[in-house]
Design a protein around this nucleic acid. Sequence first.
DNA 1: ATATAAATGTGATATAACGCACATTTATTT
DNA 2: AAATAAATGTGCGTTATATCACATTTATAT
Lengths: 226, 226
Amino acid sequence: MDITICQLCNLKSSAAQKLSEAELGMLGENCAETHYQSGDIIIKQDAHSTNVAYLKSGLVKIHTEGTIKDKIIKITKAPAYLCLPNNFGDKINHFSATALESTTVCFINVDMFKKLIYENGDFAYQIILDMSKSELQNFHNCLNNAQKQNIGRVADVILFFADSIYSAETFKLPVTREELAALAGITRESVSRILTELNNDKTLDVKGRQITILNRKILKQISEKA
Amino acid sequence: MDITICQLCNLKSSAAQKLSEAELGMLGENCAETHYQSGDIIIKQDAHSTNVAYLKSGLVKIHTEGTIKDKIIKITKAPAYLCLPNNFGDKINHFSATALESTTVCFINVDMFKKLIYENGDFAYQIILDMSKSELQNFHNCLNNAQKQNIGRVADVILFFADSIYSAETFKLPVTREELAALAGITRESVSRILTELNNDKTLDVKGRQITILNRKILKQISEKA
DNA sequence: ATATAAATGTGATATAACGCACATTTATTT
DNA sequence: AAATAAATGTGCGTTATATCACATTTATAT
């Protein structure tokens, strides 16, 4: 395993920011940085979880390979730990993670990570905070996919990219229509039809993967009520 | 706040089992035990979260009050912390918790809980383990409700009660058809129709809320493939 | 014990969404 | 540049499920 200089890293997680110089030194000795291109698999479902994955830069999708179709659980932007729950308990990866753009991931030895939790309360608390936020986010998504009709789900996904990923009213989708469908939990065809409809409405401007929100108010209404 | 004698409690959480006598003493001084009857609200959505809720005995539903209909996120059996993510971050309850039977809950001062995380690595690690398991469970539910058709969701809920709650092939549902529907994310009418169907099939024996699994193999198949 | 409310079952109808087929556009490869 | 593959859009029939309406049973209150 390569040695990484965590002390000099300017993309530390909120938890790692709580570590002492000595602890960062230990972390660096048990940490390997890896680069991925769009489409590369970072974490493979059902494999044995060997390391904690920290997404230092880039964008990934967390997904499960179902018997029939893929379901995208969520899109995660750096900085973030990837699927921490994979690393505890049964230590089997319950999900896959795949890069959606050029990304950098630090793999941290689980035992070292555990050691830091044991020894540094500040670190442990930050991890708990992270997990709490992540779980609430997941609940939100889950509810979303449970009680809305298709157009509402699509509106929600568009707003998610605009607000949580790009912080912009215009952006290029990092996913295919197929993936957008897997994220919203609907079919590719329905995504197509709905985007066409929202484009005709002048709620969105859709040019391939380039999306511009033209009427945020309406989009939000659709997301909330439909 | 009443003083509770945590040292003598024989229903300690896996995390609390890691505490020293002194720490248990502190915990007891910041802990109040409350009893609830079926239907009583334990945690109210949107309220300010003031305490960590530990479910010492009983059964509760975690739910959100949507604009139109209620959605039951999950059913939680003692022993378990109730919605830990509510207590960190924004400290607003994102969910409600309501008793489904006679239950006992210990309310623990958040600052004390935080102190224990900071000071006792074993405790912190157990909490992280708990949260990991809980999150994986939630993901499972979420996927369930995302990719199955109604009969599969109902089969899943029945298997959940049989395996995770009662560990028995015959049991009395602790919920109405309406709540069963809110849990499966479908309508009350669909639940009725499906239970009738499974009863006619001889997959289940349905007598009101008394359910007996007659053909587990088929039920499992339905749960997995439909 | 009777009255009232809540929970449940079931038919008829409406509708959202899927699945299929195929045309068309956009990427990728050779 | 040409050829191949992948991604996307769209019409149409099918289907699962919601919704509405009302009968019936079960629970709760008076």
